[in-house]
Amino acid sequence: MKNYWWKILAAALVLYTIVAGFLLSVPAQPILHETIRNLYFHVPMWFGMMTILFISLWHSIKYLSKSDIQSDIVASQAAHTGMLLGFLGIVTGSVWAKYTWGAWWVSDTKLNGAAITLLIYLAYFILRGSLDEEQKRARISAVYNIFAYVMLIVFLMILPRLNDSLHPGNGGNPGFNKYDLDSTMRMVFYPAVAGWILLGVWMMTIKVRIEKLKRKILMNE
């Protein structure tokens, strides 16, 4: 119980998000209508992705200072999990865009940023794949991971604030906190964010354990 209470919490929060997210009342807004419920699924994906990519960055820095191969395993598996969440974020965002903006994809700084994120981490995996030696792969991909994450922050945090954007919360568009006048959505949104982040971390720890077992088997052969 001491060590896995947060896993139960994650499951409970995500379950609550799904039930309450579909059943509780939401503010009636033009254009958005019921699609506003996607807020509980689309936005937490990005929160989760950034958290898990930050874990990946943290372990890359740790690898460079300590040269412990365990950190490299965590960094790479966290990047994998982060990619999964990012992909889900793009899919949920794309469906939402179809119903509100009328197109699956529009050219927009925020959307381009999302696409670039996926490209950067795909490049990271290709870099990992093209290095054979374990220590060398860990070191060089850690350097690229740190470099890429910083450029990503520039892309995602600074550029959208300078450009016009269709996306809520940017370029003069109000974020969703303006719509949620009576705070009913907050009661679902905050638990949703916490729940999805915890679920992402849980998935990451499982992936790390699988990877460690794989290496153990390889060592014993």
């Binding site: 670039i116 950067i120 870099l127 600074i158």
Partner: peptide, 10 residues
């Protein structure tokens, strides 16, 4: 090319 394009975008 693969490594530089995405991080050059910003």
């Amino acid at each position: 090319a693969i490594l530089s394009f995405p991080i050059m975008m910003p």
